[in-house]
Amino acid sequence: MIDFMQKLGHRTLSKLAAFGRSGQILFQSVVAKPAPVMMFPLLIKQIYFVGVLSLIIIVVSGLFIGMVLGLQGYTILADYGSEEAVGQMVALSLVRELAPVVTALLFAGRAGSALTAEIGLMKATEQLASLEMIGVDPLRRIIAPRLYAGFICMPLLTMIFAVVGVWGAALVAVDWLGIYSGSYWVNMQQSVDFMSDVVNGLIKAVVFGFVVTWIAVYQGYDCVPTSEGISQATTRTVVYSSLAVLGLDFILTALMFGDL
């Protein structure tokens, strides 16, 4: 029993310490120091790796999720004779929930794990230590551009996901199943509100992007610099960021759409 309490205490303390360290990393790389001009090319490069290279998986997933939503929505709504509402259903579920959440999960798997592995490998091959010895702060040089790139890319990817999804659903519902395209779009436009739906979805995307990149960067920077340590850190990035995204999604949804 005492042993158990000790273990519990130890784990709690080490988790708290890890959280503190991650906050410190975030603070030192982003908040405390303004981005110098020199960072711009680095940022471009990271946006390329984090954003542009994630584009394909986002577009393909968005397309298929939209098509599935269109198909499912049609078959369910057709039972009530209101298949015209499929546009509304697809757009609301995409803009409010699916686009930010699925994009964040894919982003964690595609970009987050790559970030962790890259930074972890840099640590293992002493590149981070070497930067420090050259007199360059690795938090500013390596971590900060990656964090900023994550914040910038996630909302953009989410928007792209939503648009492709809506378009994919239209493809199925309008072109294939033959819903009148006017009622598809008008129904959608009448039920989706820019401020309360699109902007809230965007806010979710920003929050998720922030959390996922933060976790990925921290796990890489704090990993045990061995091949086993890096693989564990990569796994932790995906698991933790997925859980964080899903948990935060509930909280944000409750704040935005539920009258709590």
């Binding site: 946006i47 542009v52 584009l55 757009a91 953009l156 928007m159 792209i160 779009w185 436009q189 699109v198």
Partner: peptide, 27 residues
């Protein structure tokens, strides 16, 4: 090429936002 593709990416992202605003939410 990297810079061009990043610029392209940013452009698509903002276009997507515009589409969402005008076409989907009927703003």
């Amino acid at each position: 090429t990297m810079e061009i593709s990043v610029g392209f990416f940013m452009l698509i992202g903002f276009l997507a936002l515009v589409v969402l605003a005008l076409n989907v939410s009927g703003l």
